[in-house]
Design a protein around this nucleic acid. Structure first.
Length: 341
RNA sequence: UGCCUCGUCGCCAAGUGGUAAGGCAUCAGACUUUGACUCUGAUAUGCGCUAGUUCGAAUCUAGCCGAGGCAA
C-alpha cells in the first residue's frame, strides 16, 4: 500500500483531501506542522486539535511536527526584512517552498514515506503543475516556487473538484468535524490580520518617519515608515487631494514614498530574480501574472542571467510591487516564476 | 484707521430664500490562503457667533468675532 504524508491545517480542504486519499486506497498519515509559538495564537492550537479530531475520525495516524526554527528563518525573518527594505513579501509562497514542499517533504522521506499531499487547489499531471479544475480557487500562483523534483512526489487530492461547495458537501456527508469551519485568509502567523502591528512588536527601528513626495519630487506630507506601505496602496495615506492618491514608488535609500494617481501605477517592464522553472521547455506563447487573482497577460522573456529575467508585458500591469511574485503560464500549465525586483 | 472680499464635515468644495451635492481623508462590511486594489455602506438636526426680516434663511439685514487684500 502506498504511503502518503498529508499536511493537515485543521481546515476543511486538507481534511477532505485526507479523506479522499484514504478512499483511494492510500495509507494516509496526517501531519500538522507547528510553525510558531502556539501560545501567541489561540487559532493555532485550535487548528491542531481540529486536525487531530479529523485524523481520529478517519482512524489515521497523526504527527505533530515542529518546524519553528525553519519557519522563523525562512518565512518570518524574510517577511520582516522585506518590509524594512521597501519590499512587499508574500509569505505563503515562501512557506510553500520551504515548509510544506521543503521541510515536510524531507520529513516524509525520513519516515520512509514516498509521497506528500496537501489541500491545495492545483493539479499535477505528467510531472506538470497545472491549474486546478476549480479555476477561480486555483493556487498554483502560490506554488510556483516549489522544487521540481518534489512535484513528482506530491499529490493534490482536490485537483478535480469544480468548486468549494463540492468539497464542503463531502465534508458534511462524511461527518468531518471541521465541515462548517470558515475559510482562513489572513497571514497564518498574524491572526490579528494587522501586519503593521506585527512589525512594530517584532522589530526594532522600523518606524522611520519620512516624506511623501509627488512625481515632481515636491514634499506633500509625511509617512510613518516605508514598512507600512506597499505599491498601489490608496488607504491610510492620510493625504487629501481632489482625486485619490496611490503609492507609486517606495524609495528605501532616502526613506521617501512617491505618491501619484491611478494612471501612474501601470508598468510593462518588470525584472525578476530567484527564478524557479518547473518545465524543460520554457518557450512559446507564455503568459504571466503578478498577483494571484490577476488576469494573465502575454509576455516577452529576456534572460539576463541564470537567475534574472526581464519580462515585458503586452498589457501594462497595475501596481507592480517589489517582493511580490511573477508567475508564468502556458495554457493551464504553471511554468514557474520569480520575485519582482 | 477707512474701504473691499471671505468664513459650509478633518481637508477641498457645491449651494445665492424652500428645507445641507460631490471629491479626498476616516471607519465598517464584502471580496481574498500574501501585501494591495476593488466593491458596498456609514459619516454636518447643521452652514463663524448673536439678534432680526420671513410661513420658511447656509442663502436677505445689522452688530460682533476671525482670515485675507487694498488704501494711508
Amino acid at each position: 500500500m502506498k504511503k502518503v504524508l498529508i499536511g493537515m491545517s485543521g481546515g476543511v480542504d486538507s481534511s477532505v483531501a485526507a479523506l479522499l486519499l484514504q478512499k483511494q486506497g492510500y495509507e494516509v498519515i496526517g501531519a500538522t506542522m507547528v510553525l510558531f509559538d502556539i501560545n501567541s495564537s489561540c487559532l493555532s492550537s485550535k487548528a491542531l486539535e481540529d486536525a487531530k479530531k479529523v485524523c481520529d475520525n478517519l482512524k489515521i495516524k497523526h504527527y505533530v511536527i515542529e518546524f519553528k526554527d525553519i519557519f522563523n528563518e525562512k518565512v518570518i525573518n524574510n517577511f520582516i526584512e522585506c518590509y524594512k527594505n521597501g519590499y512587499t513579501p508574500n509569505p505563503c509562497i515562501e512557506c510553500n517552498k520551504h515548509l510544506k514542499f521543503g521541510a515536510l517533504y524531507k520529513k516524509a522521506k525520513e519516515l520512509g514515506i514516498d509521497f506528500i499531499a496537501t489541500g491545495h487547489y492545483a493539479k499535477i499531471e505528467e510531472g506538470f503543475l497545472k491549474k486546478a479544475q476549480a479555476v477561480e480557487k486555483d493556487q498554483t500562483y502560490f506554488l510556483y516556487g516549489i522544487n521540481k523534483e518534489v512535484l513528482n512526489h506530491t499529490i493534490f487530492p482536490l485537483q478535480e473538484f469544480k468548486n468549494k461547495d463540492e468539497i464542503r458537501k463531502l465534508a458534511i456527508d462524511n461527518k468531518l468535524p471541521v465541515a462548517t469551519k470558515k475559510d482562513s485568509q489572513e497571514i497564518c502567523f498574524i491572526p490579528s490580520n494587522n501586519y503593521r502591528d506585527f512589525l512594530e512588536k517584532n522589530t526594532k527601528d522600523i518606524q522611520k518617519i519620512g516624506n511623501f513626495i509627488n512625481l515632481n519630487g515636491e514634499i506633500i506630507g509625511s509617512h510613518n515608515g516605508i514598512a507600512y506601505y506597499t505599491v498601489g496602496q490608496r488607504k491610510k495615506l492620510g493625504i487629501t487631494n481632489n482625486i485619490p492618491l496611490y503609492v507609486v514608488n517606495i524609495n528605501p535609500l532616502n526613506n521617501t514614498i512617491t505618491l501619484g494617481e491611478e494612471k501612474d501605477l501601470y508598468k510593462s517592464d518588470i525584472t525578476i530574480s530567484n527564478i524557479n522553472i518547473l518545465v524543460n521547455d520554457f518557450s512559446g506563447n507564455i503568459k504571466a501574472k503578478i498577483r494571484s487573482r490577476a488576469k494573465e497577460s502575454s509576455v516577452n522573456i529576456n534572460w539576463i542571467n541564470d537567475n534574472t529575467i526581464k519580462v515585458k508585458f503586452m498589457e501594462p500591469q497595475k501596481s507592480v510591487s517589489k517582493g511580490q511574485s511573477l508567475v508564468f503560464y502556458k495554457d493551464d500549465i504553471c511554468l514557474g516564476g520569480g520575485i519582482i525586483i
